[in-house]
Each structure stands twice: as C-alpha cells, then as structure tokens.
C-alpha cells in the first residue's frame, strides 16, 4: 500500500529545506505544539507562515505536519475521508516533493494522517498522530465575533452562550441542528471546535490513543488533544448527543456503521450510498465484503465517478 516518494519531482535539492519550512520556524511551531498538548483544547497563537498553498486550503495542517514529519514517517492525507480528492492529492504530493517521505492510503500504515473534514473509520492507534486542517479554530466565533471577548470567555470558562445556541436549536427544530463542527469540551475545561468533521466523527476523538493536532493557518492558531483525553460533545441531559445514522448500508462494501456519501446516479432521484472513507471501503471489498447492490452498484458507481473498481 505504501508508496515511496517519486524522486523525479523532488524539490529538496532545489534549495528548499526538508519539508519546506526552515528549521527555525519548525522549532517555533513545535514549541507551540508542546504548549497545546500541555493545555488540551487551548488555542495557542503561533507565527503562522505564508505557505505556497492558499489560506483556507490546509496551510495550518501543512505547517503542523511539516514541523513534526521526519524521514522515518509515513504520511496519509485525506480530504472528505478520501485519499484521491484533488486537495488531498495535492498536499500529499507537496510532502512527497519537499520531504521525500513515503505516502500511504492505509490508515494503519501511516504514522501521520493529515485530514480535512473526516476522522478515518479505522481506529487510530498509540503512536499515530492525526493532524486536522482547521478553517476556523474559534468555536465561539459565530456567537461572538470579537477575538478579545472570545479569549476572555475561554479564560473564564464562560460557555453559557454556546449552550444557549443549542437551546435555541431545540426550541426551534426539536433537536440540536448542528451536524458538523459540533462543539466539544476537552478535558472538562476548554470548549473546542472539532473542525468541520461531521458529528458522526466526534466520538472518535474521545479517549483516542493517538495524538490529535489541529492547525489553523489563516487564523494562526494551534491546538491539541493528547492521547486518552476526554472529549465530550455538548448536549443537554434530556437531549443527549447523537450521531448521524443511515437507513442504508454502504452499497459497495456493505459496511453498516460508517459515514456515507450520497451518490446521485441520475436526474430522476436515483441515488446510492457509499463509504466516505475510500480506503476503508476498498479494504473491505478486498476482504470480500459486498454491499446489497453488489456488482451492479459497483459498476454504476464506477460509471458515475469514473473510478476504477477492481473485479471481485
């Protein structure tokens, strides 16, 4: 599964430092990471650098990854759960070029997983690091646009307003109408944005054996959840947190408890559901698992997305 870095594209020789950032900057970022690990959920301001990718496209996650990656590491990059989305491909290629590290699509084989919007379905293990790309690190931002005031609210643990927004949801919709970026309390102290992962993935953050790092490039913040830390999704006693559920299973691999993408097959309402975690789904199919629509579905899917689906 693991691929060696393509030597032809390497820019390490062309005057750029290993993993692009200079060592001084990496040290500064690692100090911030250490601080973040020491105070779980607290947003540490850091001297974010301009990266050769646009802000909002993963510059924070890339700076974190660049600062911790070494030659012995194996990198997996996903976007929306998939390894082959353009942005994931682009970031993986960036590190293959600048750090010459091997890359992989297999979650278990990766020492560092950089992600946007998902946590892999395969449980993470001790020794692994997952790096989240963060567009907006401040969970209170939508309620309070002032940075100074937000920092006070965190410092004094004044989170009543966040709870009010959940109250408003229930009063209006009968349930908490937040389906992603669902706010969490870390270590019973700091309110934290889990980044725009679906709330389906929130429970994976709790008591996770892997180190979880979060980098926000544009907003210049780093935060962290150390291994085996309590991460609780906000809720009410009588409206407990619940994750998304689907009435269907994955049409390709038959998985019952994964986050599913909806694939539109035609303009007459025809659709099917497939695992958003592309590697997880492939592995299951390789192991012989089949979805309810099985071969037909696989072909329809292949036709719709132009992807290769290996024959059973």
């Amino acid at each position: 599964m693991t691929r060696a870095a393509p030597q032809s594209e390497s820019v390490v020789e062309a005057g750029y430092n290993f993993a692009y950032l200079d060592e001084q900057t990496k040290r500064m970022i690692r100090r911030c990471i250490l601080k973040a690990v020491a105070v779980p959920g607290y947003q540490v301001p850091f001297g974010g650098r301009e990266m050769p990718l646009p802000y909002g496209w993963g510059t924070g996650g890339m700076q974190v990854t660049a600062s911790i990656i070494g030659r012995a590491d194996t990198l997996k990059v996903i976007d929306q759960g998939a390894d082959d989305t353009t942005n994931a491909v682009n970031i993986r290629r960036f590190f293959a070029r600048t750090a010459e590290v091997p890359t992989t699509e297999a979650t278990a084989e990766a020492s560092i997983v950089q992600t946007r919007h998902r946590v892999p379905e395969d449980p993470l293990a001790e020794g692994q690091i997952i790096v989240y790309q963060v567009p907006q690190p401040e969970p209170l931002r939508a309620l309070e646009p002032r940075e100074v005031e937000c920092r006070k609210m965190h410092a004094y643990k004044e989170y009543g307003l966040m709870q009010v927004s959940l109250y408003e949801d229930i009063a209006r919709f009968g349930e908490i109408a937040t389906s992603y970026s669902y706010p969490v309390m870390v270590n019973d102290r700091y309110l934290m944005s889990p980044t725009p992962i679906p709330k389906f993935d929130n429970p994976k953050m709790d008591d996770c054996p892997a180190l979880q790092l979060f980098g926000a490039g544009r907003e210049k913040r780093i935060y962290a959840v150390p291994p085996y830390t309590r991460v609780k999704s906000l809720d009410f006693d009588d409206h407990p947190f619940a994750i998304q559920q689907w009435e269907e299973d994955c049409a390709l691999c038959g998985a019952e408890e994964t986050f599913l993408d909806e694939v539109i097959l035609d303009d007459k309402g025809g659709k099917m559901y497939v695992c958003s975690d592309s590697h997880f789904c492939e592995r299951r199919r390789a192991e012989g698992h089949r979805g309810r629509l099985s071969e037909g579905a696989a072909k329809a899917y292949a036709a719709a997305v132009g992807a290769d689906v290996e024959e059973a």
């Binding site: 009543g160 709870q163 009010v164 229930i170 009063a171 006693d237």
Partner: peptide, 20 residues
C-alpha cells in the same frame, strides 16, 4: 435569541444542562 433563551441564558451560564 428567543425570549426563552434570553431567560435561560443565566441558568445555562451557571451550569444548568437539562433542557426541560
């Protein structure tokens, strides 16, 4: 914020977590 939310805010600020 709704009238109910306005009144409930202080309760939630001091830790009330039962919607009902």
């Amino acid at each position: 914020v709704s009238a109910g939310g306005n009144v409930g805010e202080r309760l939630m600020a001091v830790g009330a977590r039962h919607y009902g």
